[in-house]
């Protein structure tokens, strides 16, 4: 029997990066949000280490405002693949008085996650945190390294990044530093969706069109439920919607859509004229919202 392996260059690059993480670090962890990018990372990690198990745990920073469908999906995936899952809750950081819950119209727990994440890194002494961020998402992320060194305050210093030459990754760090690793840096949103389709990867149901109670604000579609602040004049409608990114309910807007199959979703993304993060309420706070959050240790 003769069969030839023709590599998919982006997939091969991501696997190379994941193997470097396992080899260069003592306590890596995969930051898992239940979104399509971190689900893709899990598949890539399976491929990198097969037939062995993925040699690091998953860490989920739970804002408490996640879509229930995402949490259900997370627990199912972890059980199926026999992975170790660590969950740390933003609610605990609030209870400990480390962060203060935001109030009012745009209240979100999104930025509060950073504190919980940094505490978890310290608690478990993680030296490498693997994330699903992509450079095509946002302009601050376009300047991100594959191995991005953070100081012991989790800070990103954009002017002082290590040059990354060819595919040689330098993960040497000092005590207290850690590295954020982005194996799918070079993938686009469309790459991720096409990969999910080709590989037949399961994703949470909220990525597909479904009926949902929503309201409209600032030209965006918001989920109507108890976690999302809504003013009395903001009327609730039932609409067919789907989510393009999956984050905290308070910062993830839905899009009106009838795309209820993977084929329809991929077709919709291909023709889309709005960027993925255009549906992220957290990025709309200011022109440099992501950059500011990254500097203090955000994902």
């Amino acid at each position: 029997m003769s069969n030839l392996l023709i590599p998919n260059p982006k997939e091969a690059e991501s696997i190379h990066i994941l193997r470097e993480v396992a080899a260069q670090f003592e306590r890596p962890v995969l930051l898992f949000s239940g979104g399509k990018d971190s689900i893709t990372l899990v598949r890539l990690a399976q491929k990198a280490f097969y037939p062995a198990r993925i040699p690091f745990p998953l860490l989920h920073i739970d804002t408490g405002h996640n879509f229930p469908e995402t949490i259900e999906f997370r627990d199912q995936l972890v059980a199926e693949l026999g992975l170790e899952l660590i969950v740390r809750n933003v609610q605990d950081s609030i209870n400990q008085g480390k962060v203060t819950e935001e109030r009012g119209r745009y209240a979100s727990r999104n930025t509060l996650q950073t504190t919980t994440l940094l505490d978890a890194i310290e608690e478990f002494k993680f030296d490498a945190c693997i994330g699903g961020a992509r450079r095509d998402e946002e302009k601050a992320r376009a300047k991100e390294r594959v191995f991005s060194v953070r100081d012991d305050f989790g800070q990103w210093d954009e002017k002082n990044q290590r040059p990354e030459l060819f595919d040689m990754l330098n993960g040497r760090i000092h005590q207290g530093q850690n590295v954020r690793v982005f194996p799918i840096s070079n993938w686009t949103e469309l790459d991720v969706w096409e990969y999910i389709k080709t590989e037949n990867i399961a994703i949470p149901s909220i990525y597909f069109a479904h009926k949902r109670e929503v309201f409209f604000r600032d030209g965006m579609v918001w989920t109507a439920n108890e976690h999302v602040y809504r003013e009395s004049h903001e009327e609730v409608f039932e609409k067919m919607v789907r989510f393009r990114t999956v984050g905290d309910m308070t910062c993830t807007a839905a899009v009106l859509s009838d795309a209820d199959t993977l084929d329809a979703v991929v077709a919709e993304i291909r023709d889309s004229t709005i960027s993925e993060r255009g549906a992220r309420i957290d990025d709309k706070r200011s022109e440099a919202a992501m950059e500011s959050r990254k500097k203090v240790g955000y994902f």
């Binding site: 030839l4 392996l5 590599p7």
Partner: peptide
């Protein structure tokens, strides 16, 4: 030669 759960008789450069 393995890639994930498949075996191959030959791999081209660039493959992990």
């Amino acid at each position: 030669i393995h890639f994930f759960d498949q075996e191959y008789s030959e791999a081209l450069p660039g493959a992990s």
